[in-house]
Computed example of a mutant assay.
Amino acid sequence: MRPWLVLLAAFAGFLPDTAGNATAPQLANSSISRSFLIHERLNSANQWRDHVMVVAHRAGWKVNGVPVRAENSFAAIDHAAASGIEMVELDIRRSKDGVLVIMHDETLDRTTNCQGRVADWTLTALRRCNLVIEGSRQVTEERVATLAEAMLRARGRVLINIDNKLEPEALIEIAALARSLDMADGVLLKLAVWNAERLALAETITRAIGPDVAFMPILADDAVRDPAFIEEVKLTIQPPAAELVHWYRDAGAPITTDGGPLLSPRAQAVAIRNDAHLWINTYPITDRPEGMVAGGRGDYLALSTGRPEDVYGFFIERGVTIIQTDEPDALIAWLENQGLRRPYALTQ
């Protein structure tokens, strides 16, 4: 492993847990918010390059490729918090009457026992829709939840990585909601940036949401290949992390051997200079090549070959310190075995 990946970690400062609402489960016997400590590590990349943060895709719904929980569910959020996962990714859409709700697809068909477009249902009507576990179609007791409810469920325990399925400007509304729930440090917002125009939009949005809400760019290597532009992005919006997409669209092609331009030595140097994390997604996309957004090195290559070092280790060697996955439990176990996880110091 490269020497700079083993920097000694240091943390100074704690904040009392402000999650007092009965609908937001608390850290047992602790006066410190774990999500605040996670937020501190998110904003201090260079202090924590020997600790790899784990993000549960759709809140964590699979084990060994099989759905075991409803995606974007409270059950998934609770499991993530209990498992030591740092962030849950939640997908955001809007009901007919304008309420932000948690839903991945444009329609309700795949993930609930209802049918039709989310945007055609009022919140009251959506409350009648039960979440189902994909594959088995097992109906759960959970109903479609609002973003506010999901935020309260996660508050104090895990950060929420927002996958916004709406117009970019909805990020401003989401930030305001987080702030109203005393959760400005509990969410991470993001936007795809691929040219100067998108960077200007990102700058406008970051100014509107305010400096207390974390915001990062999504950079894909079909459009972003120049480290100079990567540095311009980082200097313009000063993000704590950059989510990287390393495309692999041909299942018959060789998998990546170098991580692509976004993980080149120059790109890594930009991240270190700007105290930012590099983030990769190893989860699969339905009916697409394994590891499509990770150069072919995805979760099920890691699990099927029994060589997670060829996936997770490959990216960590190239500077990645945040991994979003469909297999968070397996990833955490491997990271701990490699000495790449550091406990969160919670005081009594």
Rank of each mutant, 00 (worst) to 15 (best):
N29D: 15
N161R: 09
I92R: 03
G260T: 01
I280Q: 10
V52I: 00
R179P: 07
E149I: 02
T305W: 05
Q324P: 06
A19K: 14
R34C: 03
N72R: 06
L159W: 06
M53Q: 06
V66C: 00
R128Q: 07
G296T: 10
S180L: 06
G339W: 02
S304E: 11
V193C: 14
Q338G: 08
W121Y: 14
G339E: 10
A208R: 11
I255C: 11
L278W: 12
E86R: 00
A184S: 03
S31M: 15
G65M: 08
G313V: 10
S180Q: 11
I77H: 02
L340C: 11
Y283H: 14
A253C: 09
V320C: 08
D287E: 12
D17P: 11
V233R: 08
V224E: 13
I255R: 15
E203S: 15
A70M: 03
H51F: 01
G60F: 01
G260L: 05
N113G: 01
T347A: 14
L201Q: 14
F229K: 09
P3M: 14
G60D: 04
A276D: 08
D185R: 07
N164F: 04
P328W: 07
T23L: 15
G135M: 00
G13A: 01
L303R: 02
V233W: 13
V99P: 03
